[in-house]
């Protein structure tokens, strides 16, 4: 890349006033992931009723892009069923922020991974069957974390 990047207005507005910031006591599902690239951390808390995401909160230690993607993903999946939420891709997250600088794409993976992990946690806690894809995702995330 030549020259310095800039953030979109949407990124800055989510960063400055994050939505659904905080935590949930006794969450139905908790996802915690670390960013391998630069050492940042995100925690995502879910309250799920009838497989629907009733409440969602996050805490993030990271750059403005990491905070903005955390914030926007909570908006995107709130009220959705877990099945719908699992379909969330980081492209959707990036698009709904009007784009991210290339060097910040990895920050958006953090939020998608945290969501997957939180749903995984919920399913495990409730002795539910884990979709094969989610199982694989979980394995990828945790082994990456171990290696770090």
């Amino acid at each position: 890349m030549r020259g310095q990047f800039t953030y979109s207005k949407k990124v800055l507005s989510h960063f400055r006033k994050p939505h659904n910031l905080g935590n949930i006591k006794n969450p139905s599902g908790l996802g915690e992931v670390g960013n391998l690239a630069c050492g940042d951390v995100m925690k995502l808390y879910l309250k799920i009723e009838d497989d629907k995401i009733e409440e969602i909160k996050f805490e993030t230690y990271g750059c403005a892009a990491a905070i903005a993607t955390s914030s926007v993903i909570t908006d995107l999946v709130k009220g959705k069923t877990i099945e719908e939420a699992l379909k969330m891709t980081n492209k959707e997250v990036i698009d709904s922020l009007d784009g991210l600088p290339p060097i910040k794409i990895h920050c958006s993976l953090l939020s998608v991974d945290a969501l997957g992990e939180a749903i995984y946690d919920y399913l495990v806690k409730n002795n539910r069957e884990i979709p094969k894809e989610l199982e694989e995702r979980h394995r990828r995330i945790t082994t990456l974390a171990d290696h770090h």
């Binding site: 800055l12 960063f15 690239a37 630069c38 050492g39 750059c63 403005a64 905070i67 920050c107």
Partner: peptide, 30 residues
């Protein structure tokens, strides 16, 4: 402690204050 520099820098910038950070997030090689 427990603060990431780039987000701190941007939040300060929002209040008109300009400075620099040594955070990994703000460097071009992370």
């Amino acid at each position: 402690k427990n603060v990431e520099g780039e987000s701190l820098l941007l939040e300060l910038d929002n209040r008109g204050i300009m400075c620099s950070t040594g955070s990994a997030c703000s460097s071009n090689n992370l």
